[in-house]
């Protein structure tokens, strides 16, 4: 009764936005769609919210087909588009009331559902929505998407452009909503948010790279990751890219994350190589893999296969 997709493909004039995508989201699940900009996340959302017709494949939301039952879906899902899509010239309260009215409900009727979020924006209820801060806007948009007690909630990059504190708060809200039995599909380009989902799908170039719980995706990471640091970061990156034992190397915070092709590779070999290349202040330590590491590896394999 959650969401299910079977072999969904969608192309625009020259770009293939979605390639043969199939997955299921269980009822009551908080499912993350993780991928960079342009991966096809928004297109996928639009197919599921009945805004676009897929070229191939079938999909259903809460048991309803996205093509034949599109009117019923529009009645029962909540959708928060990636761009702030509320009325800038209406106040917070007017926006909420408007969305309540068009869904034939009132603010009071479903107040318990949005209460926790609404109390945070209530002090600004007479402020025009266009004058709210980024985090506040997203909270208001979430309230508006929730006002009719949707069975399924689609959140397209809800935390993009929001400060870290508000992001954290936002995810806590989603966790609490989950307890109210709402199925949620959330997309994000922030890899660190993946661990907050029940399950995630990693998506790139319109293809699903992996679907699993965040924990298992990390566990499945096949290699040892080394945090590498030296005085000249840029030269370090260039040198490691040329190194014959390198499987992947990419910047990660203040370090470079390095993995080797060779399973028996040790950190001593790496240090030796870097000393040969006259790097100074070398630091090498083992790192715990994150979703981002998995994504980088999977996406590299994906593009290698593609070529």
């Amino acid at each position: 009764m959650g969401i299910s997709l079977h072999h969904i493909s969608k192309s625009f004039k020259s770009v293939t936005a979605l390639k043969d995508i199939s997955f299921d989201v269980k009822s009551g699940e908080l499912f993350g769609l993780i991928g960079p900009d342009g991966a096809g996340k928004t297109t996928l959302f639009r197919v599921l919210t009945t805004l676009l017709l897929a070229d191939e494949g079938t999909a259903s939301v809460a048991g309803m087909d996205v093509v034949t039952d599109y009117k019923a879906i529009r009645n029962s899902v909540g959708y928060m588009p990636g761009r702030f899509s509320l009325y800038h010239d209406l106040t917070v309260e007017e926006n909420l009331n408007f969305f309540a009215t068009i869904f034939n409900t009132t603010l009071e009727e479903n107040y318990d559902l949005i209460k926790e979020i609404y109390v945070q924006i209530e002090p600004f209820k007479n402020r025009r929505a266009g004058k709210l801060s980024g985090g506040m806007k997203q909270k208001l948009a979430l309230c508006c998407a929730l006002i009719h007690k949707p069975k399924v909630l689609f959140l397209d990059e809800p935390t993009t452009g929001v400060d870290p504190v508000s992001r954290k708060e936002f995810w806590e809200m989603l966790k609490r909503l989950q307890q109210k039995d709402i199925t949620m599909l959330v997309s994000t380009a922030y890899m660190d948010e993946a661990s907050l989902c029940d399950r995630v799908a990693l998506i790139q170039d319109g293809t699903i790279l992996e679907i699993d719980t965040p924990q298992r995706i990390i566990e499945k990471f096949p290699r040892t990751i080394y945090n590498v640091k030296a005085s000249e970061t840029y030269r370090l990156l260039k040198d490691l890219e040329k190194y014959e034992a390198t499987h992947s190397v990419y910047p990660f915070g203040e370090f470079l994350h390095f993995t080797s092709k060779d399973a028996a590779f040790t950190s001593e070999e790496l240090i030796q190589f870097l000393e040969q290349e006259h790097h100074t202040e070398i630091e090498v330590s083992e790192a715990i893999p994150t979703i981002e590491d998995s994504f980088m590896t999977l996406s590299k394999e994906h593009s290698n296969n593609g070529n």
Binding site: L51, K71, R74, N75, V77, Y79, P81, L86
Partner: peptide
């Protein structure tokens, strides 16, 4: 906002 209005009753 048209997107939201479309995904509404």
């Amino acid at each position: 906002t048209m997107e939201i209005l479309l995904v509404s009753p």
